[in-house]
Design a protein around this nucleic acid. Sequence first.
DNA 1: TCATTTTTTGAAAGCGCTTTCAAGACGAAA
DNA 2: TTTCGTCTTGAAAGCGCTTTCAAAAAATGA
Lengths: 350, 350
Amino acid sequence: MSIRRSESAVKSVRPGAVTLDDVAAAAGVSPATVSRCLNNPQSVRTEKRTRIREAVETLNYVPHGAARALASRHTRMLGAVFPSLDSALFGGALEAFQNEVADAGYTVVVAASGYDPERERFHIRNLLESGVEGLLLVGNGRAADVYRLIANTGTPYVLTWISEASGGHPCIGFDNCAAATHLASYLCDLGHRRFAVFSGQTATNDRAVARLEGVRNELQARGLELEPDFVFERPFEAEAGRDAFRLLMARDNPPTALICGSEPLAYGAIFEAHDMGLPVPEQMSIAGFDDMWLAAQLRPSLTTVQTPRIEMGRNAAHYLLARLTGEEVAEPRPLETKLIVRASTGPPPD
Amino acid sequence: MSIRRSESAVKSVRPGAVTLDDVAAAAGVSPATVSRCLNNPQSVRTEKRTRIREAVETLNYVPHGAARALASRHTRMLGAVFPSLDSALFGGALEAFQNEVADAGYTVVVAASGYDPERERFHIRNLLESGVEGLLLVGNGRAADVYRLIANTGTPYVLTWISEASGGHPCIGFDNCAAATHLASYLCDLGHRRFAVFSGQTATNDRAVARLEGVRNELQARGLELEPDFVFERPFEAEAGRDAFRLLMARDNPPTALICGSEPLAYGAIFEAHDMGLPVPEQMSIAGFDDMWLAAQLRPSLTTVQTPRIEMGRNAAHYLLARLTGEEVAEPRPLETKLIVRASTGPPPD
DNA sequence: TCATTTTTTGAAAGCGCTTTCAAGACGAAA
DNA sequence: TTTCGTCTTGAAAGCGCTTTCAAAAAATGA
């Protein structure tokens, strides 16, 4: 078996690149057969199969993804754009997504938008140009032209972290509004009447909007009101939670319960309360959203709403993969959240 | 200007896919000119440029990445394989990496290995087949054939989280051993003589090995010894830190200082000490590694070694991008770590 | 004005694979 | 043996773009 190399390798930009033709020549078969052997081994006679495999081995052949994608019209890549990646929140979902997708032989192209719609659009476009066959996004509330862009390429996509979207986009997530309502309801039942909310930035975060609305709905249903002065929009950082809590407690006649739209804000509030010597939950009940590991470890441990970040990543993968096989996929059902009552909430002071 | 569509679009798998030829026909120029207009606009006469841009606009043309990659021999994709993604540690590095890379028009393909060498190899191979032009990896200690695979494709790569690697691989990171030595030295200076270490899994984590070695070196230099019984290998989770701390304190004559190879282990130890009513640092000094946001917020706040995760992500991006332009890139210099002394460490009890 | 240089353009040849398609090899049945 | 249907195989035609290369057009200078 003489091992020859195509001339292309010589003038290649990456000299030494072994092509499928090289393998074919080495194994003494046609390129078509090598291709079949790689993609559908049982369609090739055993004897040739081993010869081809030997050639692949000795030549260290690595298939050329772009060429394969161009010819087969499949990139085997999925895209994901998250608001951020430097926390366990979206990171967990990304990891779960990637794991599922990898099992199916797909690869994940990822980008972080920093909660900036312009950057998100930019990244979505880039991913589509790279040829991703499916797209995981977070939340809704992006401009119509972004959806038009996606629709134009015919790429399946799914919105995570929400359970339904105006516009009929497929969603895999939970009902932010209902979850917040549930949490507010629990606090009302404890006897609280005056609330504060530390919310995410409503301008660029529809989940934050929905959570705020959920709280408002419940209060309204009980004839209560959420004072605008007690609503703080903050980035999702503990430090921001501390600041806001300090401001909040400087007001006269502060509320007795605080609902945080994300957990870091709640951590910050609890830390600040601790430093101020304000007993939680005796003087102030504090609740969060997401149930990261720290919520259970904190003292007092944090009452919070558990959100299914791993499940969202995993289900989004399954959904997109199913759509790619051409299956008609049922509209995904909303995922469950769970109120986890811990030690940071209790009845209001008399 | 008549807008025609190539026949290819009709039988395309993705019907409606607009190709560069369609744009050319619509704009009344050759495909070559459209290509030039897209990649190097100033080489095309202004008048045609606008005509082409109009056609791109009205046809909603999205370039086909695989075709472009095949013809130009550039995928404009970079790959990254991290041990995990569900924490701010590697997540932060990934986000920084992605941001830098995006500015240069590159896209990031990412995978999580779960600290499993087999899965890492699998993902590295997949990324190379996808055609990434550069590769970010974490740490060293992988089998030689993995490096051979990478070298075979000629793909530039960089090892992060370490500052030098046997085998002469390019690294962008810090000296884990020296950092640990520094931390141990500080604790020795406080008067501690008997130490425990909560380490990462040394079988699959060369950074953990180096940190452990750093501690051992310093103790040895001072004529001290690290009792094997006081070394716990644990996954990087607070819960594991709690368990280990409970075990540790159940030993008779426990040590007076605890060095944790990662911060979650230290958090766990502090939480458990708190629950046990063991005063930190009066009865036990506890130090960590990484300086995540929680370290400063915890009570007692955590003495730790600040590691440059954002810088590593960013520098790795710059390094790979520079290598891709063909520049001869200087061997990157080790990054600095910084001992952050806070409230969780102090002199040993008498 | 014309010759000369410079800029802009289009034709055509791939990039490295997959996938028809038709032919060849093979085994089973007659 | 022949015939038929089934597996296997190779030739060849692309996939949608970039990039020579040489020709055409525009700009320049004399």
